[in-house]
């Protein structure tokens, strides 16, 4: 898996709710889990044009408690659908598991990250080392990467694929 993403920065504030701000609640209630369906509604309650503006490799930089609320996975599957990376000041426990389970490369907690960049900056993030380069501002920031064993889950494509791999290993 390529752990280095380069693209445009999309910056968001604190306390973005998983149900609503990140993904309309109706998709959690209908248990929709197709990233291709969900990507068209990512952040649409904050910015209806967002799904059309982003490109694969772009990076969401978010404030504290990104994905707070009832831990539904749909918002993170929407991020996966666009092949975006995520760097957040913090992610609450339930959503922390869901970012991994959705197979989204991310860095968190990254205290202070929102003060280093603005929407539109050209960013390069290595999710395996935790190094974030802001090319626009010619700055580098080092964060702690996610543990290798949790990155393994992201690398195989998320929770379901990882369980299948574990099952194959346990019976093989």
């Amino acid at each position: 898996m390529n752990w280095i993403y380069r693209g445009r920065c999309w910056k968001f504030g604190d306390n973005l709710g998983i149900d609503g701000a990140i993904m309309p609640l109706r998709f959690a209630l209908s248990r929709e889990t197709d990233p291709i369906v969900l990507r068209d509604f990512l952040m649409s309650e904050v910015d209806p044009e967002f799904p059309k503006k982003v490109n694969p490799g772009d990076i969401i930089v978010a404030g504290r408690r990104f994905g707070q609320g009832n831990p539904h996975i749909q918002g993170f599957l929407g991020i996966r659908g666009h092949r975006l990376g995520l760097v957040a000041e913090s992610i609450p426990r339930g959503s922390f598991r869901n970012v991994i389970n959705a197979g989204v490369p991310f860095l968190a907690p990254c205290l202070g990250v929102t003060s280093t960049c603005e929407t539109g900056d050209d960013l390069e993030v290595d999710f395996s080392t935790g190094l974030m380069r802001n090319i626009t501002r010619a700055q580098e920031h080092q964060f702690t990467p996610v543990e290798p064993e949790l990155r393994d889950i992201i690398a195989v494509g998320g929770w379901k694929e990882h369980v299948k791999q574990r099952l194959a290993q346990s019976t093989g």
Binding site: P71, I73, G94, R97, N101, E149, L150, I153, W159, V163, R166, L167, S170
Partner: peptide, 16 residues
């Protein structure tokens, strides 16, 4: 609690 990951626990005996 691990919510939906309970399936992994039931099948494999553990989850991270």
């Amino acid at each position: 609690a691990f919510v939906v990951e309970v399936s992994e626990i039931l099948a494999l005996g553990s989850v991270w």
